[in-house]
Simulated assay, not measured.
Amino acid sequence: MRSWIKSVAAFAAMLACTAATPPGIDPDNPTCPAKPNWSDYKTMVLTPFKRSGELVLLAEGRVDSALPARLEKVLSDNPSISEIWIRSPGGDARAGNAAGLLIRKFSKSRQMITRIPSGWTCFSACNFVFMGGRARTIDPGGHFMVHMFTMTGDKDAIQSSVAQGTESTTELISDVEREAALMATEDNDLLIRLDVSRDLLSDIMYRQKAVATGSDRSTRRCLTRKEALRYNVINIGGD
């Protein structure tokens, strides 16, 4: 009898869990898709293509340190590019900031839109590339996914420093804190220059946990359309 009761309880718990998390949604990060479509290219691939007579640039893959140089060449060689469609899992934060500023520079002399198409995801460093557009839009079903900046993902550096002893680990912690402070300042300055509300950092990005702990596994957040408009992440295509 007890075994039967346990089985029923387990089945009910499974149904409750299934009902609470719609299909395709990440149960740990319930505002985001379970399998983000952000491309598996190891470095960002830039591909101009014609669409309805307009030249569009596809920007797909990881934000790497050489992206700004490649992006500048593509935009210089293709002055008729009218839109940039972006999907990326993020990558080099400073390269993302530089690429965003580069897009803004080119946007001064031409009408150029940055877009996250339906089903695509722009995460982490990609956020700042996207926000470089003077005109910005996210199609319904597109995802602007954010997280807290962290260096704790560098496991090799952490393990090496711990192996070397307390002094080395203390130096690493100092480096992490200094780098985090610098990035926070740079991000804040960049949002001002890209006419995006700085409240995006304090209200959304910096409220995310850097590392999942305990029962709350959420480390990512996808903006709703209302939030994207409120913080001026998008400035065209509003409801």
Rank of each mutant, 00 (worst) to 15 (best):
G96V: 06
T121P: 02
W38Y: 12
R225N: 10
A99G: 11
M131D: 03
K226N: 09
C32W: 00
I25F: 06
R115Q: 09
H147W: 06
R51T: 05
C126H: 03
S160H: 13
R2Q: 15
C222N: 01
F123A: 09
S76V: 14
I234E: 06
W4F: 10
E167K: 15
W4R: 10
S118L: 02
Y206L: 08
M151Y: 08
I173P: 01
R115A: 04
S39C: 08
S215L: 14
A19K: 04
F123K: 06
A135F: 14
M183Y: 11
R110Q: 07
T47G: 10
S124V: 01
Q159T: 15
A210C: 02
S82T: 13
A9P: 00
E171N: 14
E179W: 07
L223S: 02
A16G: 15
T18W: 13
F106I: 08
G90H: 07
E186R: 11
N188R: 15
P117I: 03
A69F: 11
G119S: 06
Q208S: 13
A212F: 06
E227I: 09
I103S: 01
R198T: 07
Q164K: 15
V129T: 11
L172G: 06
N29C: 07
E186W: 03
S88G: 08
G90E: 08
I103N: 01
M44N: 04
L201S: 05
S65V: 09
S52H: 13
T31K: 15
S65G: 10
E60S: 07
L15H: 02
R70W: 00
W120G: 05
S202A: 13
F123L: 08
G214Y: 05
V129I: 15
R221N: 11
T47D: 13
L71Y: 04
G214N: 02
K42Y: 09
R94T: 04
V129H: 07
A59G: 07
L55I: 13
G96E: 00
F128H: 02
D189R: 09
A13N: 11
V63K: 04
A13C: 13
R221K: 15
D187N: 13
P23R: 08
G24M: 06
N232T: 07
K50P: 02
S168D: 05
I84L: 08
A93I: 11
R87P: 03
M145L: 14
P79V: 00
F144S: 00
G214I: 00
T185D: 12
Q208W: 10
Q208I: 09
A34Y: 06
K50A: 08
C222V: 01
D139H: 05
V211G: 06
M44Q: 12
A66R: 14
K155I: 07
M44K: 04
W4M: 08
A95C: 06
D199M: 10
N188W: 12
E177L: 15
C222R: 02
R104D: 14
N235S: 09
R110T: 03
N78R: 12
F149A: 10
R220L: 11
A210V: 05
R104K: 15
L190T: 11
I86S: 01
L200P: 09
D187V: 01
A59W: 02
T150A: 11
G238C: 01
A69V: 14
T169S: 14
M148F: 13
T43Y: 11
S168A: 15
V162P: 04
F128V: 01
K35N: 13
